[in-house]
């Protein structure tokens, strides 16, 4: 009964919106106005099939490599810098400034240096995602609990053991926050870099549809971007709930 109620709460409004949208655009002839039925139709007839492999897969590949590299480098560097007061002090203002530069600004420069192929796009995604992960990791390491740090010291854990058993798990909630913030940035930069200059990819194809006034396929492409965003957010939440089960459990307990 309770599950049923939750389900109805979750589905009621979306269903209502789609119905209103569908009814409202039924007799619409303006090609710029998207219709839900048409959009779904275009999604399956235009995008599903070869176009998916040719345009969407390369996009996802760039996204995956760029984001993955940012996660690995961000966490590693963050743990190292965060553990040293000297390194933190040296890098603080410099990082603060670099972070403030909107990543798309680097797009023209990267294109110039690395060319129009995958490398410039992957590197842009990497650079854009690096900062939230790196800075959150540094903060996470810096703000580990002092009592727990002393406990770890008294039991003689140093170096690698200290990182593995204490610093990394203690910083993990902040690391996950960093990754969560990096996800939308990764998608944005993926799409932007393809819209700006590319030979293939989701963003490239959507702009092409727009320029050739194929509104239906364009709308369907935008729907795919939205679906990727939602899917990644959902997937991340699953992983986070699993990895940080202890963290959320503890917070639940503290609230009571």
């Amino acid at each position: 009964m309770k599950a049923l109620k939750a389900l109805s709460a979750a589905l009621a409004l979306p269903i209502l919106i789609v119905i209103v949208w569908w009814l409202g655009t039924m007799n619409e002839t303006n090609p710029f106005v998207p219709k839900p039925g048409q959009m779904l139709n275009d999604l399956f007839t235009v995008w599903v099939g070869p176009l998916m492999a040719e345009q969407v897969v390369p996009s996802l590949y760039r996204l995956g490599v760029g984001l993955g590299a940012a996660i690995i480098v961000g966490i590693t560097l963050g743990l190292l810098i965060g553990a040293s007061r000297l390194a933190r002090a040296l890098t603080g203002p410099a990082f603060e400034f670099i972070r403030a530069v909107p990543p798309p600004v680097l797009l023209p420069v990267l294109l110039l240096i690395l060319g129009i192929d995958d490398r410039s796009k992957i590197f842009l995604i990497f650079l854009g995602c690096l900062w939230p992960i790196l800075l959150n990791t540094i903060d996470g390491v810096r703000s580990v609990d002092s009592v727990l740090a002393d406990t770890t010291s008294t039991y003689g854990m140093q170096g690698w053991a200290r990182f593995r058993w204490f610093v990394f798990p203690a910083a993990l909630p902040r690391i996950m926050t960093g990754i969560r913030l990096a996800l939308p940035i990764a998608i944005i930069l993926m799409v932007v870099s393809e819209m700006y200059a590319a030979l293939d990819g989701l963003g490239y194809r959507i702009m092409l549809f727009k320029q050739t006034f194929q509104m239906g396929p364009m709308w369907a492409g935008i729907l795919i971007i939205g679906l990727i965003g939602i899917l990644m957010a959902g997937l991340f939440r699953l992983v986070e709930r699993r990895v940080l089960a202890w963290y959320y459990g503890q917070r639940e307990m503290e609230k009571q």
């Binding site: 609990d145 009592v147 727990l148 002393d150 202890w246 963290y247």
Partner: peptide
């Protein structure tokens, strides 16, 4: 509360 590792 702060001397045990909450993730273990």
């Amino acid at each position: 509360g702060r001397s045990l590792y909450p993730w273990m």
